[in-house]
């Protein structure tokens, strides 16, 4: 697998699959994957959320996509830049193509419209020894779904724009967005992190969080290159890993 092709040169469209990330992983294991390959499904029977969580999406209404990237030339300390890249591609798509307002990135990798989640990302990496061989960027973007069981926490392009859009057009535009930013992973990853921080949900705002069941408040000042969130608590900037703290967003 070589990094010489455009993302989305090869698109595999599936009617139903357990999860597009699993499918991508199987392609990789079978030696059939190529850099830039995109896998889209109308429906995922077992879409992946965070470890063990299930991503629910109504059939044919949302963009369920996995993209395979060759990462041989990157060191493992660049892992979080791929997360920043993925977030920026979606945020840029929503802002510049669909003109959605108030798009932000909730640490570490959810995309919000206002205070509601519009997209989620799940990245799986293959690592052998210290070699990072490839990344599978899994994206669930709510497009035409207008009914959610948890409506006050979820939204979609259709809800935000009052338009029904073709999924394949969203796919096309997202791939364009990815091809627009991918080179920065090689040339200027710090810029990606800067953009990530510029779009960070609740940046420079007071937020509440819990750590070991105790509540704290502080000002969210940014996310560093390791992906740690930095919160100023009583004039003292503290760094936290994901899962070390829980943000309280109500």
């Amino acid at each position: 697998m070589r990094r010489n092709s455009t993302i989305g040169d090869v698109i595999i469209e599936l009617i139903e699959i357990d999860s597009t990330n699993n499918y991508a992983m199987r392609l990789l294991n079978e030696g059939m994957a190529e850099h830039g390959m995109a896998i889209r499904a109308d429906f995922q029977s077992n879409g992946k959320g965070q470890h063990g969580n299930v991503w629910h999406a109504e059939e044919c209404k949302n963009l369920l996509l996995s993209v395979i990237l060759d990462t041989h030339s990157f060191s493992l300390d660049k892992l979080f830049y791929f997360n920043a890249f993925s977030c920026i591609c979606i945020a840029d798509l929503l802002m510049s193509v669909y003109n959605l307002r108030d798009i932000s990135i909730k640490w570490p990798n959810d995309i919000y419209a206002g205070d509601k989640k519009i997209a989620g990302i799940l990245i799986e990496n293959n690592i052998r020894g210290t070699t990072w061989t490839n990344a599978i960027i899994g994206i669930g973007l709510n497009v035409n779904q207008t009914h959610f069981t948890d409506l006050h926490r979820a939204t979609s392009i259709a809800i935000e724009s009052a338009l029904t859009v073709k999924i394949n057009l969203v796919l096309e535009n997202l791939l364009k967005s990815m091809n627009k930013f991918i080179h920065q992973l090689d040339t200027n990853p710090e810029e990606l992190l800067k953009m990530y921080n510029a779009s960070l949900y609740k940046l420079n705002k007071q937020i509440s969080f819990s750590k070991n069941s105790e509540m704290y408040t502080g000002k969210l000042v940014g996310v560093n290159e390791s992906g740690q969130i930095e919160i100023e608590v009583k004039n003292n900037i503290q760094k936290f890993k994901h899962k070390e703290i829980e943000l309280i967003l109500e």
Binding site: D9, V10, E13, L14, I15, A33, D42, N179
Partner: peptide
């Protein structure tokens, strides 16, 4: 899984379409 269709689309650069042999990736 069953692939509904697996094609290379003229998304960004139509000229970069892959040859037909690449259009399918068995599951």
């Amino acid at each position: 899984a069953t692939a509904k269709k697996a094609n290379s689309k003229p998304v960004a650069k139509p000229s970069k379409n892959v040859p037909a042999s690449k259009k399918i990736s068995p599951t």
